[in-house]
C-alpha cells in the first residue's frame, strides 16, 4: 500500500502534479489553503503506486511518498 502526503499549506495550486500521475489520482481540492490556493491532493490513495512522479515535478516540495 502506498501513501502520498500533501503539505497543503505549501501548495501554490500550479497543478503540475495532476499532469504526471500515471494512475490519474492526483486532483485539485476545491478548498483553499491559508495563501488562497486550491491545494493538490489524492482522490483514491488505494490506487497509488508510489512512483513519486507527482513529488518529482512539484516545485514546492509539497509531496512526500511512502511505500
Amino acid at each position: 500500500m502506498a501513501k502520498v502526503t500533501f503539505n497543503e499549506e505549501r501548495c501554490k495550486g500550479c497543478e503540475l502534479c495532476t499532469l504526471v500521475c500515471p494512475v490519474k489520482i492526483v486532483i485539485m481540492h476545491k478548498k483553499f489553503n491559508k495563501r488562497g490556493f486550491n491545494p493538490a491532493g489524492v482522490s483514491d490513495m488505494s490506487k497509488c503506486i508510489a512512483c513519486a512522479a507527482c513529488a518529482r515535478i512539484c516545485p514546492d516540495v509539497v509531496i512526500s511518498v511512502e511505500k
Partner: peptide, 27 residues
Amino acid sequence: MVKVFDCPKSLTDMPTHYCPGCTHGII
C-alpha cells in the same frame, strides 16, 4: 511504510517566493 520520496535535507523548510508552477523550485 518506508519513505520513497521526501524533501531533501539540504533545502531549508522556508517556502519559496517563486510563482506557482515556476520550475526554479524543482531545480
